[in-house]
Amino acid sequence: MEMKKIKFVINGQPCELKVYPWATLLEMIREDLQLIGTKEGCGQGECGSCTVIMDGKTINSCLVPAVEADGKEITTIEGLARGDKLHPVQEAFVENAGMQCGFCTPGMIMSAKALLDRNPAPSDEEIRAGIAGNFCRCTGYTKIIESIRAAAALMEGRK
């Protein structure tokens, strides 16, 4: 089958690639672009480990064909920090023990960022709903929720 040429912006950088029609966005991100921070847990859109932000919305990149990225703007976990300066969500996760094994963390942080971008002061219930597509088997979520709450405060303070 023929490869298709697509153009998109990833983590602020314009990019042009040829992808197979059957390739997933996750494969493109991890293999073609070598951005290995995005993880594959279940490959079935259930676990949320592969969450990235495409045009402002979180998606399970394991379910989205790579060709769908054409003309879109994508942010992965690698696109959050500015040099050495962590994004407030990242900073809050480090300070508040928001991660343990770290495997769900990139996807979780992307969901948290998308949530805070659309709702800068979420209630605990809204936080729980905002990360309802991301499994974490280590933390029991309490510290993740505290991290997101802290991130909201950090982001509020920086405005």
Binding site: K39, E40, T76, Q90, V94, G98, M99, G102, F103, T105
Partner: peptide, 19 residues
């Protein structure tokens, strides 16, 4: 004390076997 591996885990730098 925050986890010493916190930073590499929130930036996506931490490499797992499949990486």
């Amino acid at each position: 004390i925050p986890r010493i591996d916190g930073r590499v885990k929130v930036t996506g730098e931490a490499k797992y076997a499949a990486d």
